[in-house]
Amino acid sequence: MHIEIDEIAKSFGSTTALHPVSLAIPSGALVALLGPSGSGKTTLLRILGGLEFPTSGRVLFDGQDATGLSVQERRAGFVFQSYALFRHMTVFENIAYGLRARPRRTRPPQAEIERRVTRLLELIQLPQIAKRFPSQLSGGQRQRVALARALAIEPRMLLLDEPFGALDARVRKELRQGLREIHDSTGLTTVFVTHDQDEAMELADLVVVMSMGRIEQVGRPQDIRARPATPFVREFIET
């Protein structure tokens, strides 16, 4: 799905989280929102997912105005920074949640739900853990379950807030590869937030560099490396 951000601004009381920003995300792209802490990455992602309402501006999905769509209507697969798995449910129930929440008309029967959850568990390469609770999983496993849960609703796009933030270096590398593969096989338009420039450069087709609520530069990783548009970008990618 093609996403267009048209002059979106957001303020919380007196703090401005986003100055008007515009950005076009081509269908099927894997995009990184890169920037230091407090630059407005999470805010922009939450506005795309419908969890936050912009102060002004519009969001367009495939050319249609989606600004007024509710969270539920947006059907964005959202992976939260701390994963936000339902702690009192098993992995199976976590992944099945979105399917069970559908209105009766479109809700798949139990056998179909089981089939889909099993397939997703295979996709994230954790077929054995369906009966465990989130507290019985490692950080990397939790992250993958959160991804499977988001994919279960057959989302129109995938939004991930610092998906690898809390993990050690080796697991990060593995999961990066996993995300790339899932993106390539599903073809979903994917936006992920990171403040790690290596991660952004290595994984993304398109990198969006942000600072203090503004977009500093948008481009392919090699172009940003070769031609930083502003002093901020140059400094940020050097460190």
Partner: peptide
Amino acid sequence: RAEEEAALTLGASGWRAFLTV
């Protein structure tokens, strides 16, 4: 609020999120 928000993004209504999460 993260778990409730997760439920909403998965398509649950506010009331369902309250009851199930």
